[in-house]
Nucleic acid binder design. Structure first.
Lengths: 204, 204, 204, 204
DNA sequence: CATGAATGAGAGTTCATTCAT
DNA sequence: GATGAATGAACTCTCATTCAT
């Protein structure tokens, strides 16, 4: 067993190395500059080698996306710490917005681009988002158990909150807000104000 | 004057023909397949000819986007007809969602892709979205004048409603909802339910 | 006659306007940016109009070259004023070098590029250079009449002087001197020193 | 090690094949017709393959230039054989002129065109010309040690000789001599006579 | 396991030029 | 006389991917 285990471990390590390089490239250079070639160069392997670990660019991007979601979860773990679920809900929202602002390229990959979603087989759920969504779901469940929200269905509640947050962040990331007469500072204020307002609306 | 008028009209018609070809291509084949070359082929002109009417791909896409916004406005004009602003607000939301579902590629171009936003000069507002946004703004203003909403600032209200709608539609368009365990029908229900819920939340 | 004379004059004026635009463009933007289109734009005519006055780009460039030679002659007229032919010879040389340094794009067109020379028919001499060459020729003739030079044949003398000057200037213009380890200042010194040396060599 | 050596050799051979194709194309068709595409076609590879060996057109041209300089050196080695440096100087000059006449397109690339000089980084000397320049420099040094020349500084001397030779050859290559009333034979005589005369001038 | 070599496909763009009007 | 419209023919370059070794 020792040998095959080592092999498996080494394979895993290589996959990781590739993903990390890709992730870094994505964050520093953006989508455009992230080509199989460039990733390969970064880890000092040949492009062909990438294909030994990932069947195509989509699968690779899917893994990069996964990595990005890990980072979002870490952000949540760092920021959303209050034992009070209502307070925590606010922390989650702000953490989410901050993440999008800090890593727009990543946010695009996670929630906006078509690209890596093709590698999800039909009828198979999209695992990457699950954990971070659960953070929200749990928080909302606690809130609702305490009767703090005007929602009835927790799943629907979670979807709504996510949609609201995503709406704000993605309009920002895709430059649709800046394009409307607004200074960047104004945009930020508007987003934060929208969140406050929304939290106010859903509070019972 | 007849001549110059005719010339101008012909020029306009040509521009339109290009846009229409681009739009069709966009809707049927998606962004990836929409190249200057392919558009030119479709209208049976040379690629160089396109450049007589549009300075580059970005400008062309910006016009396609404009065209798409016209269609959204038409949809609003068709669907959001009630004199009662509250009813109309619901109509607007549903019209918006229906539009996104019917033309996901266009929706992407309008609100999600980075692509054509480069052709907007700094400090110059993004005109394409203005009119349809005004429809929403007007409706919300009327609602608030009648005291129907729990909002205080109408601009902020409009942004929030837009963000909410966009959040739902764009997650759908980018396949993030389907990817989560959900059947397509379920997705649709969820979106509609979210809207109902949201309208409920903002009603005073 | 009045009418056809006016027509001819207008035609000439138009040709001049084109050339002037082309010349300016050449000097400010360089060869690469000087296209028929850009010239046409500058004088606010259509590209096709250019072809009414010049049969192709080569013929046009040939005229631009002519214009450039006029400027060189003016430079000579300005700089080479001494009645003493030996002093004047030095003035001519320095004027020539200065001209090349000041208008490298023009110099290229005048003496280095293949481009506009095609429009010279076989067995027909190249008129553009004649006048400025005569300035040199005359000066050398005077020098030789006074027995100031170690040359025997004045034509050969003129060719040699021209070749020497052109060798220095063109190596500079084509960046072959800068490319050799030398600072720009050093280059200039070297060129001037070479000239002094050469004048010294030919003085009897 | 055998394998990597072979690989390296093959790579080198491929580079050479590309350069040779480019050189031939250059000599037979001229600069205008020498495109990456055409070179690729000539060696029956795809254009993309070229980019595996040369990063861009400039780098390729720079290598072609290098190749050309090798040929010039060979010409010098062949022609400039006399142990007597003064005789050798004449041989060098004639070899140089002959080379220019035989390969005008190459001469253009070597000494006249702007093109491949971009790939020389700032503050980095232009290596291609070095060796052939050294041949001249050495010869002049020997001459001056024997007190055969009226020069004082050997570097300046070398520059002057080079400039003189280049002036003659480049005016010929760029058709400025033929264009002046002269038959081709006359041109050749004139060039040779100028050289004799110049050598005469510098001889002490 | 890793890769060097190769490529087909295609991108956006520019240009000199022509010609019917 | 002037031009608007159009184009054919290029161009350089990049990419994801494959496959024999």
């Amino acid at each position: 067993m020792g040998i095959s285990e080592r092999k498996a471990r080494e394979k895993q390590e290589m996959r990781l190395r590739i993903i990390e390089a890709a992730t870094e490239m994505f964050m520093s250079e953006g989508y455009e500059k992230t080509s199989i070639r460039n990733i390969a160069e970064k880890i000092e392997y040949s492009p062909a080698t990438i294909y030994l670990y990932y069947k195509d660019k989509d699968e690779l991007l899917y893994e990069v996306q996964k990595q990005a979601f890990s980072q979002l979860e870490e952000a949540f773990a760092r920021d959303a710490t209050s034992p009070d679920p209502w307070v925590r809900l606010g922390q989650i929202c702000h953490s989410y917005v901050r993440f999008g602002k800090a890593h727009p390229e990543m946010y695009e990959l996670m929630f906006m681009m078509r690209a890596p979603m093709n590698s999800i087989k039909e009828n198979e759920p999209w695992r990457n988002n699950t954990d971070s969504f659960v953070v929200l779901l749990t928080c909302l469940t606690e809130c609702m158990e305490k009767g703090l929200l005007r929602f009835k269905d927790v799943t629907l509640a979670a979807f709504s909150v996510w949609a609201m947050g995503h709406g704000l962040v993605s309009l920002d990331v895709s430059c649709r807000l800046q394009a409307m007469n607004m200074t960047e500072q104004h945009v930020e204020e508007m987003i934060l104000a929208s969140i406050e307002q929304y939290l106010n609306l859903i509070k019972s």
